[in-house]
Design a protein around this nucleic acid. Structure first.
Lengths: 188, 188
DNA sequence: AGGGGATGTTAGTGATCACTAACATCGGTG
DNA sequence: CACCGATGTTAGTGATCACTAACATCCCCT
């Protein structure tokens, strides 16, 4: 067949891959699983990605870029560091609540990405963390940078915990809860 | 061979398994890998566990039991809810910092445990969460229980983030940092 | 001293995996 | 309207996996 829904397929594979990798892990998902999830057979995947690794890499690079771009944009609109922190928190929480599979894959499967693309993801992640450290440094100049970085990482753990404990609360309620907890933890 | 270091082997396999599962995921570790990690060949594992699933189950049940037992004991020694919360935080942080592999496997690989033992793990985890909810309920009777449970889960995400961002800070410094962040987040 | 249980080894076995080869079908384009 | 590129299919192929079978070795016990 050849219904020309070209890059609809590609992004459908990306989304289905994120979902499957999030719930069963990279090695727990077969090419056949991925194909079936988008209504084709397994090998059709190779028309869109050179291999399973490359599919995972595409997912991770995409989410890392989107996180960083979102942070950059929000910071540009918030000159006041206090507002900036709220903006970063709101952005991250929205991402975690609306795309839990992407967040899960993003902080679990980096080791399965081929080295070359792994370096790209790591650089994007580092830049994202630096956005947070920069804002925190303005709010708490008394705390050394290394400690602020550790705080940022720990807070990501808090915000990213949503996928594992989902369903308990309504989305809006969860959002305000996570933002207030994150803010309190960061400024403690 | 038959050097009678009987259950040394068994616990060595458990520890090596936790380490390997934590870094490469359950499906990313082979029986041969597990054997090699304890100085034997792969199939020797079947003298100690009926299968790969059972090994994972043993790891998860053990860590869940130890977490719960630690929480119970610490609560018994802290009648004041404020001290109790500190005790729970200190216990969880110590666990996360001294056995990061166990913590990682504990909240990532439950889906790969056979159903029967998975129920056991889930019950232990639920009891552990209830320890936290009970203490939080005394400190913040204004907050509904469901919200407190969500807070506890999010805080676990914060405390368990250590394995992924390790190496940045000294252990003692990380411990105080995580405890203060966790406390601030929970009481926010 | 020697038999047996615990524990290990090597050599498979069938299933599954990522990936490839060869061929089919469609839509757009000259 | 014939062709071509994009996209799909089925049928392998070799590697690897979890697990088993058959046999070996060691320590302990009587």
């Amino acid at each position: 067949m050849g219904t020309h829904e070209t890059s609809t397929r590609r992004s459908a594979i990306l989304m289905a891959g994120a979902e499957l990798f999030a719930t069963r892990g990279f090695h727990g998902v077969s090419i056949e699983d991925l194909g079936r999830a988008v209504g084709t057979t397994g090998p059709a995947l190779y028309r869109h990605f050179p291999g399973k690794d490359a599919l995972l890499a595409a997912i991770l690079i995409d989410v890392s870029e989107r996180l960083l771009a979102g942070a950059d944009e929000r910071l540009r609109g918030s000159p006041d560091p206090d507002d900036a922190l709220d903006a970063l928190l709101a952005g991250h929480v929205e991402f975690a609540l609306t795309e839990p599979a992407l967040i899960t894959v993003h902080d679990r499967e980096l080791d399965n990405v081929p080295p070359e693309q792994r370096r790209i993801v790591r650089r994007l992640q580092r830049q994202y963390v630096e956005c947070w450290v920069r804002v925190l440094g303005q709010l708490r100049p008394d705390i050394p940078e290394g400690r602020l970085r550790a705080k940022a990482h720990a807070t990501f753990g808090l915000l990213n915990s949503t996928p594992h404990s989902a369903g308990d609360l309504a989305l809006a309620e969860m959002s305000t809860l996570l933002r207030s907890m994150g803010r309190a933890a960061l400024l403690a």
